[in-house]
Design a protein around this nucleic acid. Structure first.
Lengths: 357, 357
DNA sequence: TGTTAGCACTCTGAGCGAGGGAGTGCTAAC
DNA sequence: GTTAGCACTCCCTCGCTCAGAGTGCTAACA
């Protein structure tokens, strides 16, 4: 049996109707659609075929048809109409993202917020993984007799710092020396590469005089590097899920919340998805997310680092609208975090200076 | 009519029974309790009195009694038995809080997690407000041609940084000069005080040569100071609320989530609570939280800064247990973040050094 | 005078059955 | 190949009843 054009048309109608109503679709309902000029009986025959082929299911004998995961997949791949974002929404996105755009973390958080508002789903965003970011310099700064702040700056401008409690007394000169030697040794190296180096040995060879400080400094330094690798997860719109009829059962809602608020596990899921625009539906997801669909897309920072943004919701999601919103936001984010070409920056700054006077 | 001992005893029994069952309590049930030696009829009379006095209500004629907000308040103030935390739990708290205790933010997050696990409620924690923290120094650091990192360190070791996009070209000397002058001017001053100073004027008088940079630097500096005043909110255990029978109705669960995931508003509520151990019940809260009870307590950092930790849940909360967990955790946190007396620190460090060798 | 037993009354919630509605599958005719 | 017709299935709602829980009132008791 093959999926001829008529079957596709019927399937498409069922999926899109089900997406908007969440009610099983019957043959009579379909036959009333202006774009389908067939009698209920004919439609029933086709439906029966589609069910046999695994695209439809049946909650019970006298109910209409419901799309299967396979049907959603086909719908997303072939049948769905891409929708163009209304100009108003595009403007809103641009405006809200460009406001306060100097902090990556904050902008990403805003993007997630925006996304959940526009899709009425639960949205999330993760910040880029920095394991391949290069270290720009390392600085130890005094706080009080026994505490020091360690600061590591990446070439992309990301600053990570930690407090270090020193077990031995130190002088400012000690800190300056450590800063210099470590910057000299690690500048330009990737975070992941530095993590594998033997830093204790460095104290023994390059800074013998400070070997006594190694005990306090080395573990903190390693921890800070690991902290740089952390991917932050933002989520928004939790309560949106409760507006959907499929979660009127509290235990389902709870399952959802549990799956999604386990930050570590969920971050893991997000990190390991396909790059670019990725849509996974139902059993394409891990066990605890098999009742949901996820749509994600990537944004770039400085043309290199890659973060990710998306939504999670029921399988009967308005894939067309959702994807276009996500794409528009990620594209916009990528633009926002682009490095301006150096010459241009210089020109602009000259202008800005003039204006200031 | 007065609240004689018998009435108090009955009220206490009703509240504590209702807390554990969430079912309206009838006179027969009460009369079966070993500590109450009265016939159902007598109890009914007393209940009727208590209802008249506003301590009990009645869902409908043939249902048992339910405590009012007033009854919970009395219960918390007078009738509740403080429960002592089992030694096992105390140990678990200590262990889990002291692990990775070098980062305040992280430890506070862990504390919230722990709290929701131990109470099976939704927990939250806010970091201290730093408006009166004193600035230790200010540092501008180069990233690339057009970006600079601004770092402000407080006396308590908190580091805040922001990226600044420079509109005019700069040199490392410029940055060093700015760092020096600004540190000199602001060292020892409270963040809130610095926020009111005229920083632009400082560029005109103390750093005329750098006046061109003021346009990029001043707004970012102000923003960074404001960022230091931000209080972070952590929450944990959202899904716990769905195990409670009173939230088996999805719309109630949604109301809860909406009230609680509005971060800005909810942080505000938390910041403005009474100091120390604070319990607010039902209509003692703002409108959107009037169906809940909140229990919070403060922890101290360096004996000065004050952060806050607590839970939100149904009014029929096990106040005794919950308060003792919260108290134990906040006390423990305060200990963890105490500044060790300087002499002691010196001794310890000498020891540590010996051990290292 | 406070306490208790008894009783009528009220309200809820579970259980049951009937009936309408929606939808299917099959058959036979076009 | 398409359609009309029809019997059949299943769900959902509605109304009804009935048991259970609990109250309030009254009258009797210590």
């Amino acid at each position: 049996m093959d999926l001829n054009e008529r079957k596709l048309k019927i399937l498409q109608a069922i999926v899109s109707d089900f997406i908007s109503t969440s009610e099983p679709i019957g043959s009579r309902t379909l036959s009333k659609r202006p774009d389908i000029d067939l009698s209920p009986a004919t439609i029933r025959n086709e439906m029966s075929d589609l069910e046999e082929m695994g695209y439809l299911t049946h909650p019970h004998t006298s109910a209409g048809r419901v799309p299967s995961d396979k049907a959603y997949r086909l719908y997303v791949d072939q049948l769905m109409k891409g929708s163009d974002l209304p100009e108003v929404n595009k403007q809103e996105i641009s405006e809200r993202l460009h406001k306060d755009a100097d902090e990556l973390d904050q902008t990403v958080e805003h993007a997630a917020q925006l996304l959940s508002e526009m899709t009425n789903l639960v949205s999330f965003a993760i910040t880029p993984n920095r394991s391949e970011s290069k270290i720009s310099y390392i600085n130890f700064l005094p706080v009080d007799e026994s505490s020091v702040v360690l600061m590591i700056v990446c070439e992309d401008g990301k600053v990570t710092n930690s407090a270090i409690r020193m077990n031995s007394p130190y002088t400012e000169e000690n800190l300056t020396l450590m800063s210099k030697v470590m910057t000299h040794n690690f500048k330009g190296k990737a975070v992941s590469a530095v993590l594998t180096e033997n830093i204790a040995a460095m104290f023994e060879s390059d800074m013998q005089a400070l070997a006594g400080l190694a005990g306090s400094v080395v573990p903190s330094f390693m921890k800070t590097l690991e902290k740089m690798l952390n991917v932050d997860l933002y989520m928004d719109g939790y309560s949106n899920i409760f507006r959907l009829p499929e979660y009127s059962d509290v235990s389902k809602a709870r399952n959802f919340l549990e799956a999604v608020t386990n930050k570590e596990q969920f971050t893991n899921v997000l990190v390991n998805r396909d790059q670019g625009l990725a849509i996974t539906i139902g059993d394409e997801n891990s066990e605890d997310l098999k009742d949901f669909a996820l749509v994600t897309a990537d944004y770039k920072v400085n043309g290199k680092l890659v973060g990710r943004l998306g939504v999670i919701g029921p399988k009967r999601m308005k894939y067309g609208e959702v994807t276009s919103v996500i794409k528009y936001i990620t594209d916009n984010l990528s633009q926002t975090f682009e490095i301006p070409a150096p010459e241009e920056a210089a020109e602009e700054s000259a202008e800005a200076e003039d204006n200031d006077k």
